[in-house]
């Protein structure tokens, strides 16, 4: 085990998979230089045919990934920012997810789309939105959003080996985070949650950077004598309903923490699922902690106020504790 940064773990996953399978290649704007350092250095090892710099044409590049995937390759398309996925929406929503079903099983689309998701670098609305909830709403697109270097590496490797379209969302705010990354090869299955903190009083379900927000809140709550269980879903589609429902069966309280705008957020889906499935075991109404319902602001002070913060999580937990 060595402690590695998120960026280094992603870089390792890409390089290992490209070494393992000649069908795997990477394309996108500036993947050679590596605007986000996770693709840096790959061009030197693999050359221009496997690390392809493309024009800034998200729609065409995503579609080209699909076309290459249905012809037997395993493309990784780096679209850079989550918000840029909007420019490629047709190819993702109308084509990638639907093709296998729509063509009666004649083909499959082993494609990985990569993008940085969400806020934290004060980049304003066009570079700071979290977009994962849109893709959870699309049939047959897998969505993963690991929060630690260890999970990032294992899940990205699984995504590259997956025979279906997978959206891999990482976060600039996590790039420098470190965790123990095993020296030996390992995979983390898509769709499996990880309990990042065990607790008996309330279940806090979250994903991506807000895992750290939830853990911070849990630490404060613990000092008050409230033990929160923090579930890091890691995968959003499919997501680990079993782990969440088991936890709620134990705690009887549920708080969903999600960096989405509130309507139809990922948190909405988790909360509805819990309310439907284990209503009789709930001691309090489910709570959602999401972004404020406004566009992403630039000012660091305002950006912080839009995002779910530790105080918001603590307040939501207190609400659930008021019913006892």
């Amino acid at each position: 085990m060595a402690r590695k940064t998120y960026v280094a773990a992603i870089q390792e996953a890409l390089a290992e998979e490209m070494r393992r399978d000649p069908r795997v290649f990477l394309m996108g704007e500036d993947v050679r230089i590596g605007v986000f350092p996770s693709t840096r250095g790959l061009h030197a090892e693999f050359g221009g045919k496997r690390v392809i710099d493309t024009p800034i044409s998200e729609l065409a590049v995503a579609g080209a990934g699909i076309g290459a995937a249905v012809n037997g390759l395993r493309p990784i398309v780096d679209l850079m920012f989550g918000t840029f996925l909007y420019l490629a929406f047709d190819q993702i929503a109308n084509q990638a997810g639907a093709m296998r079903f729509m063509y009666g099983g004649q083909t499959n689309v082993p494609l990985v789309l990569m993008a940085q998701n969400g806020a934290g670098s004060s980049a304003g609305h066009h570079h700071s939105q979290a977009v994962h909830q849109f893709f959870m709403n699309m049939p047959q697109i897998k969505v993963i959003m690991p929060s630690t270097p260890t999970d990032g590496k294992g899940l990205l490797k699984s995504a590259i080996r997956d025979d279906n379209p997978v959206l891999f969302l990482h976060s600039l705010s996590l790039g420098g985070k470190r965790s123990d990354v095993p020296e030996n090869e390992y995979l983390i299955p898509i769709g499996e949650a990880d309990i990042k903190r065990a607790g008996s009083d309330v279940t806090i379900c979250t994903v991506g950077p807000t895992v750290y927000t939830a853990l911070g809140a849990a630490k404060t709550l613990s000092r008050e004598g409230i033990e929160a269980e923090v579930i890091d879903l890691r995968s959003l589609s499919p997501w680990d309903k079993g782990a969440v429902l088991d936890s709620v069966a134990k705690t009887g309280r549920f708080v969903a923490v999600d960096e989405s705008f509130p309507s139809c957020s990922a948190a909405s889906e988790w909360a509805a699922t819990v309310a439907e499935a284990v209503f009789s075991q709930l001691k309090a109404p489910v709570q959602r902690v999401t972004n404020k319902d406004v566009p992403m602001p630039f000012s660091p002070a305002l950006e912080k106020a839009v995002l779910p913060g530790e105080a918001d999580v603590i307040a939501a937990v207190h609400k659930t504790m008021a019913y006892s």
């Binding site: 729609l59 065409a60 590049v61 995503a62 579609g63 080209a64 990934g65 699909i66 076309g67 290459a68 995937a69 249905v70 012809n71 037997g72 390759l73 493309p75 190819q91 084509q95």
Partner: peptide, 10 residues
């Protein structure tokens, strides 16, 4: 069109 580009790319 983009998918056909991908077929050509393959």
């Amino acid at each position: 069109l983009p998918i056909a580009v991908g077929a050509g790319l393959s």
